[in-house]
Design a protein around this nucleic acid. Structure first.
Lengths: 213, 213
DNA sequence: ACCTGAACACCGTTCAAGT
DNA sequence: ACCTGAACACCGTTCAAGT
């Protein structure tokens, strides 16, 4: 569900004739396919069924072409995965951190971050799928890069919140590891693992324990 | 490397003639194979190369038989994975928590737990490999069970260390999530991600932040 | 009781040929 | 510029036949 294509750089230059990108849930592309179409289809599959589901033949079936045509766009399944992940990495940037620049007080900002991360389901779907597939060689470097960026942001915030340089870095590591472990253990809401009330209490505990007073 | 077979229930009853289980690194089994041999070989592979590497044909090659013979022992690759993971789950129990019963003071015990987890590389190898493969349907339930057990242990320890029932549960969640995220992000030592000194400081920060004073 | 060998299905990959 | 169709390799699975 939920096509995440929305804010894509869209068409590159020419491209045949895309008569208003359809109306149904499934894109139902009329003309021929571009590499971007394949990458987006792969991303959708990752969100829906995980990285392992990204297979050339099923994807081709889904797109209504033969698998042979895939190899005009990409040299391998691995290359498709990489393109899909790159696509995601580019979009991912603003998703969480962009909205936070508005909150001036660093402690408030950290609390807001906790709340946002806790209650914004959609933005973790792909990241969570990737975490469950670190097995795949294409995934690890992407997660590494994204994690590094977020960790730096967190460390800076803790620094601004008054922690010493070293402590800020450590606290950022702890906080981010807790986030990753949280996704990993499927403690999320919407996964029916925890009642709403207890979940809120947990988030409060996090803020109390991790955000400097 | 590192055959983890050491403390296996060993042979079931009869079994052909195992003339002292060899001396080389690779078991080099002479007679015919049992289901346990396949499961152990699968576990070894998981530790060395991850869950994805557990494939029937390569395993058969490694064991010096044809892949057809595998299906006398297991109905499917999935069943082999499950048997291997069950084997691990049984052995895993004592590994970390057994040694801790000796420390009486709960706060001291928690600190000792942090230190042990931080410096005992071997015991996380399989768990970490499984975390990277939650994609595979056989893996998730095992991780869920093991995690639940450890979480309960942690919660009890925090309770004994003086936290209120609710707080103890939340702190256990936070702590365990941090552990999982830590493995996930490859922050471990031996992975050359952090210099020794910084690593020790991080562990200290964890204890200071998470263990009640 | 355990293994071989041949068979088939499914998916990744290649490539000559089509439009 | 993009796609089809047939081919091959590799791995999962089945099964009749061997020891």
């Amino acid at each position: 569900m939920a096509r995440s294509a929305a804010k894509t750089p869209a068409a590159s230059a020419d491209a045949g004739a895309d008569t208003a990108d359809a109306a149904a849930g499934k894109p139902e592309r009329s003309g021929r396919l571009s590499a971007e179409d394949w990458a987006q289809a792969a991303l959708d599959l990752i969100a829906e069924q995980g990285v392992a589901a990204v297979a050339v033949e099923p994807l081709a079936r889904r797109l209504g072409v033969t698998k042979g045509s895939f190899y005009w766009h990409f040299p391998s399944r691995e290359a498709l995965l990489q393109a899909a992940l790159e696509r995601w990495e580019n979009v991912e940037q603003e998703a969480v951190f962009g909205t936070l620049e508005q909150v001036p007080d660093p402690r408030e900002r950290l609390r807001a971050l906790f709340q946002m991360v806790a209650h914004e389901y959609q933005s973790h779907v792909i990241y969570s799928a990737l975490l469950k597939a670190l097995d795949h060689p294409a995934v690890q470097p992407v997660i590494d890069r994204v994690s590094k960026r977020r960790l730096d942001y967190l460390a800076a915030s803790f620094r601004q919140a008054g922690l010493a340089r070293e402590d800020a870095l450590h606290r950022a590591r702890l906080t981010y590891a807790a986030y990753v472990g949280f996704l990993q253990l499927n403690l999320q809401l919407h996964q029916a693992r925890m009642p709403q009330e207890e979940f809120e209490a947990y988030v409060e505990h996090l803020a109390k324990t991790l955000v400097p007073a």
